[in-house]
């Protein structure tokens, strides 16, 4: 048996199981919709949208939140991390806050942000900003720290100034780790986004899933989960493509 046959076999077993469970009447549609119903729900969402908003609007709303929150958080976090890596004093001053914020469950501080900033976009984007910041900062700091000392010394002995060393040696070497951090941050931001839309929102894919769940429309829930899954994969692929373009020297040293 070839490996692809095993894949096909298990996949068809799963689909057969799904058909048997749903069409065979073992579980109610409420718990697990049959494939046909899922497709109908997808077509329905494409044509009618969800709660008077077209489907693409929910997707775009979610994506804008991710890009703004992640972009701002990764930019500030990377800058902070570079400073932390380069100047031990900055590291000592900022480390307690970064180390505290990093493992803190994002949703725990969402309620404070809602009290302070309301339930609109500001609190969501601030949440995503705070979610992306510590991960990016730690990645940039470690990236700077892991730059080989030999290289820095070579540059210095060739007469490079502090800024030149940073610009031409430290930053390019740290860039690979900065990107690894960015991909990690995008994953966290994306997971947090869904959570934030669940708590307070009137648009977005995460909101759609929870709202549909409230009305026991599990067909919409399933379609939403599939959309979220594919969006997540697409986001990660996008960053990976940017990374291989930009940091083409990674792993070739």
């Amino acid at each position: 048996m070839r490996p692809w046959m095993a894949t096909a076999l298990v996949a068809s077993a799963l689909i057969a199981g799904w058909l048997w469970l749903t069409l065979g009447g073992v579980v109610r549609d409420l718990f697990l919709p049959p494939p046909g119903e899922l497709w109908d729900a997808f077509v329905d969402l494409l044509q009618e949208g969800y709660k008077s908003r077209p489907l693409w609007e929910h997707i775009v709303d979610s994506l804008i939140r991710v890009f703004v929150g992640f972009g701002a958080g990764a930019a500030v976090g990377t800058l902070l991390g570079l400073l932390m890596g380069y100047f031990p004093t900055v590291d000592a001053l900022a480390a307690p806050f970064v180390e505290f914020l990093r493992p803190l469950p994002q949703l725990a501080y969402l309620v404070l942000l809602i009290i302070w900033l309301g339930i609109g976009e500001t609190s969501k984007i601030t949440l995503l900003f705070l979610a992306a910041l510590p991960v990016s900062a730690v990645a940039a700091r470690d990236g700077v720290r892991n730059v080989s000392q030999a290289r820095i010394q070579v540059a210095r002995s060739l007469g490079a100034g502090k800024w030149q060393i940073f610009r031409h040696v430290v930053f390019p070497s740290a860039l690979a780790e900065i990107f690894t951090g960015a991909r990690l941050a995008v994953g966290i931001v994306y997971g947090t986004l869904i959570a934030s839309e669940i708590i307070a929102g009137t648009s977005g894919i995460g909101w759609m899933i929870v709202d549909a769940g409230r009305f026991l429309r599990s067909d919409y829930v399933f379609v939403g989960i599939l959309i979220i899954g594919f969006m997540g994969i697409a986001l990660d692929r996008l960053l990976l493509a940017v990374e291989t373009r930009l940091v083409h020297w990674a792993g070739k040293q």
């Binding site: 959570a195 669940i198 995460g206 549909a212 769940g213 026991l216 939403g224 989960i225 979220i228």
Partner: peptide
């Protein structure tokens, strides 16, 4: 199956699990 589950934010399927 595992690579399909991996990038899904857990919160997205919590609704189903509660159901």
């Amino acid at each position: 199956v595992i690579q399909f589950l991996r990038p899904l934010p857990p919160l997205s399927y919590l609704v189903l699990l509660i159901l």
